[in-house]
Each structure stands twice: as structure tokens, then as C-alpha cells.
Design a protein around this nucleic acid. Sequence first.
DNA 1: TTAGGGTTAG
Length: 614
Amino acid sequence: MTFSQPLHTLQSQLCSVARKSPSLAKKLHAQIIKAGLNGHEPFSNTLLDAYGKCGLIQDALQLFDALPQRDSVAWASLLTACNLTNLPQPALSISRSLLRTGFHPDHFVFASLVKACANLGPLHVKQGKQVHARFLLSPFSDDDVVKSSLVDMYAKFGLPHYGRAVFDSISSLNSISWTAMISGYARSGRTFEACQLFRETPYRNLFAWTALISGLVQSGNGVDAFHLFVEMRREGVSIVDPLVLSSVVGACANLAVLELGKQIHGLVITLGYESCLFISNSLIDVYAKCSDLVAAKYIFCKMCRKDVVSWTSIIVGTAQHGQAEMALALYDDMVLAGVKPNEVTFVGLMYACSHAGLVSKGRALFRSMVEDYGIKPSLQHYTCLLDLFSRSGHLDEAENLIRTMPFNPDEPTWAALLSACKHHGNTKMAVRIADHLLKIKPEDPSSYILLSNIYAGAGLWEKVSKVRKVMMVMEVKKEPGYSCVDLGKESHVFYAGETSHPMKDEIIGLMRKLDAEMRKRGYVPDTSSVLHDMDQQEKERQLFMHSERLAVAYGLLKAVPQTIIRVVKNLRVCGDCHTVLKLISTIANREIHVRDAKRYHHFKDGNCSCNDFW
DNA sequence: TTAGGGTTAG
């Protein structure tokens, strides 16, 4: 490259090559300054655009600040730069100053501005609506591109009905507007409307399929998402990019169905996407969530490029399965590899610390998150810290934190602290917290059971009867518990108390044998979690028929010998089942993995990876 | 110069 080329060559270089090469963009900038063309409108705007497109956001911001005049092209280029690098904070301050200066945006600026608001997320609904209002009052209020971006913005805010109003006003709908609207319905759980719109669209392409399937996965409807994926395959839609696959892999993780995850993994390999970063990240997660950590680590180790999500996924996976030291060692490796942790990484790390009772390490990590990485702690981080203090018996510190943290503690948070008081035998604090919890009227039946147990433990019988009355008045009923056992080629769901299974005699027979052996070893049923008033024998019968026990017994009868019995449960494991599963792991000499509503339990040789705290 | 689908926690 020479520095004495004609101006039009310079301009065209900026437009093409510089967008892909940061170093070339900088060289051309230097050339512009040398030629005295600094501040010349066409050059500065094109350079701004080039900096933005090759990811040099700081340079773009500096250049913009130095501009003597800022026209629509400059504002649009800067906002596009922020949007491309997904930097919501600079975009936020840019859009604020843009609106403050009284500048009249054109349709290009509006489209970028709306996209910036969408990237900022649902916490910035107000700002998004302000931009929408300004657009409606502008001379560009008929522009369909801006309307499409508004549909997308409301989709990302979780307000699809607002998006629908804009969608209906679009004069010429295209593939982009349809996709944005389908995604809006799907991701906010409006499955019916999403599917209806999908059936109506003339653009039934991979974008629309991905929007629908991914949206359903995001809103927790993995089963429907899977059926649609099967339909998509049957229609012969060519999977020319792997985006839909990462969602489908994610659905396997949420549903914790290992066999299905393996099949999708096979498909990923067949289609040639196994080395794609996003896909590998999802695969780490699916194997970790299906409690096959060996496979998760294998995927992780084989990746040639690892980003923060890859590291975080493996750290969270190992932490959730009770391998705290391993999770912390992985974090050290991550820092050494020069990858910057994010807010999710710290959730995983603090979770690891709380499992291993590493109080000072957890505190230090919380501090490091704020001071070294500038991450503002969220409610989840405070919950992790609280869990760390509670589990390790630092109850005063836990109570102090819950009362001083900058978030309103919700019912599960108080219930967690209460449960810790019970675990550590601090009756005085337990009663104080129970009184508070009773005042805020919990909705979860298990909170009432906990309250009742606390008062009973403290001999406060009047309060016990008060709790029972509240439960009766509110008709507090437990959600039916079910457990799914994964046997590789098949899986089976058992409901608590279910006796309709064709193999019920064998299942109950095995459970009786195990029960007799457990009682020989000193097992006494703990009926404190049984909700209803009934005699001891009936309570014990209820516990005996808890879904995880049926599932594990069936697993012992049907699974390949020596293999791990894998169970997924919708509710939390009760104290008695936890004791029973530990005993069964010794008696049957079998490893049992249970994923409950809160965490993972690996039962082996009479112990559990959660260290009896959950 | 502007608009659509993807991964980690909860």
C-alpha cells in the first residue's frame, strides 16, 4: 500500500478491505490524517463505519468524539458498531446523548437505535418505548425496516403483543419481519400463536424454523421444540448453518435426556458441525446436565478454541456435580489461558466453594468479581454467597447479608436460610426467621412443611397448629412428584404412589427387600416431610412409594449391570429419600445419579456428592 | 449506512 494514492482509491479501500482488517483500517486512518483530510465528512464517516465493522469500537468512539459535526450517517455507523460488538453500555449512553441533543434521526438511525435498545434487554423497556414514540412522530414513521426492528425489540423484551401491533402495520412483510414475530411469540411461551404464525408464513425457511424451535427451547418447551425439529427434518429443510442445532442440543440438556443428546451429537457430526464453538459449548452442557461429566470433559478438551462459555460450562458442570476442587482448578487454567470470566462463571465458582465449605475462597472470589472484573453482583451472586455462609454454619453473617443486600430477598431465599438454621441446630434464629417467613405468606408448600418442622422442633405447638390452619385455609397442596429413569434405549416416568406399572410386583418386591436390609443397618424412616395428618404407618407407606425410589428400583431391575442409574426428578429430594438412596448405593453396590429441582446428587458407597446439604 | 434465527446461571 502506498500513501500517495488517489482519494477515490482511499475511499474504496476503506469501504471494502478495511472493514475486515483492523490493522489496515488504522493504516488508512493514519494516511487520512497525513493527507490533512481529518474531519472531512465522507472520509470520517466511512472510517467510522470501517472501525465499527472490524470491531475496533474504542477507535470508533474516539473518532466520533473528535468529529466537528455529526450527521445521521455518523450516528448510525457508531450505533451499528456497538450493535455488532454487542456492547450495550456505550450504545445506551450514545442513544441518550443523541435524544438529548435534539437531533432528528433518520430511518437508518432509528433502525440502529431500536436494535441497540433490543440488545440492552428487557430492563430498558422504557427507553425502547421512548424511541418507538419518537419514530412514530418522525417523518419516517412508515419505514418497514424500522418497524421490523421494533418487532424484534419487543420480542426481545418479552412483549410480543406490542410487537404484533407493529407487525400488523407493516405494509410489505418480508422474511425478516415474519421471523422476528414468530421468535417473539415462541420465546415468551406463546406456543400456540408462534405455531399459528409459522403455519401462515410464506417464508418457511431455516430462519423461521430456527426462530420457532429456539424460542420454544428458551421458554422451557423442549418437548414441542423437539417434535418440530423432527418435522423440520422430515420436510427435508437443509441445515446450512448450525444455529438450530445448538438450540436442539440445549433442549436435550434441559430435559436431561442423555440418549437423545447422544443422537443429536451424532447428527451434529454427520452434518459436519462438531468443531463449531457454539455447538461444542452446548454439548458440554448437555453431557454435564445428563451427569456424564467424563463425556463433557472430553468434548471440552478436544476443542481447539475455547471461549468464556466453554470454560464456564465445564466449571459449572463440575461444580454442580460436587467436584469443587476440580472446578476451582479449571478456573485457574481459564485465567492462565487469558479468558476473562463473566457473571455466570462466578455463579459456578461460588457454587463450588459453597459445596466444599471454602468460605474465605468464596468471599475472595466475590470480591475479585467486583474489583478485578467490574461485574455488578446480581441476586444470583448474593444467593450463592448466602448459600456459602449458610451451608458452612456462618449463620449470623448469612442473616446480615440477607438483610443488607441490595435486593429484596424472596421466599426461597428465606427458606434456604431457615433450612440452614435447622441443619445447624440454631433454633433461636430459626424461629425468628420462621416468624418472618410466615408473615410474608409463602406460596410453596414445602415452606410450610419447613415452618411446621421448625416450630415442632422448638416445642412451639401453638404455632404448629397455626401453620396447619393456614395450610388448610390456603388449600396448600404439594405438586405431584415424578421421577424419570434413563435406561439408555428407553426411559420411564414414575409418579409418587404409582402402582400401575406392569412390573409393579417385581419393583415393590425389590423395594421391600432393600427396606428390610436398610432397617437391619439402623434405618428409621423420617416422616417429617409428609404433609398430611395421618398415622405413622401411613406416612411411612407414603415415603416408601416416593417416585425416585420406584424409579431407582426399576433401574436396578432393568439397567445394564454395573452402569450408573440416572434419575431426573421434578421436585426436591426429601430427607428420607436422600438417606434411603445413600443406603441403596451401598447395599446394591451401585452408583446412582439424581437430578432434582435444585441440584445434582451422586450417591456412591453410602455417601452423596452434596454432602447432605441441599 | 438500517431490520430476523444460536451456547453458559436462574
